[in-house]
Amino acid sequence: MGTFFDSFPSPDPLPPPRPLLPWQGPAELTFGGFVPLRAVLVDTESVLVVVDRLLAHPTGLEFTVLVARRHASDDLADPLDWGQHRGNGGLDPPAEVLRLGIAYVDGRKASSLARPPHWEEENPKDPVLVMRSGHGSRGRWEKQYWLWPLPPEGPTGFVVHWPAEGVDEWRVDVDGAAIHAAADQALALGDG
């Protein structure tokens, strides 16, 4: 081996990654309390949209959205990912995008169409709904969302609107008290 590269000092290690802000996801090593609820948002001849696997944390709510076409499909475009339909993230979402929203009992709302806050914003003004992970193709998708903050007690609305599927705006209320009861069962193993 030569000597050129060995003559440079090793750089300092990077600082550890910063923990997530509360609106970005659950705190590390915390496990949400299970909310025994399931909300069927869309159930048509062609497609099914279900909110399931709700896990409540003191700081917010995790849930999974399942989208399934009832018939064989070669549709590869994720209906929950605006960017896959139109690259310019334009101001008008196309009809193929499934709009998902949460209506808090106090009138506040969170929407999948809203632009997320700046990454370093510590206290966003409005509730935030972020997609954290997920997978799928060919007519079946599973997406995990994080909703911040935890909705207050009272009916909490899951709202859907999917123009391309002929689904007009539709709201299904779930029991906020059940969400709060589950949040009390959340388990924190981390420092915080």
Partner: peptide, 21 residues
């Protein structure tokens, strides 16, 4: 400035829509 994907067609997998964006 809101563009998230390069403006080239092979980035678009929407085969369900015959219309090209």
């Amino acid at each position: 400035p809101g563009r998230t994907l390069p403006p080239f067609p092979h980035w678009y997998w929407d085969r369900s829509s015959p219309e090209i964006p």
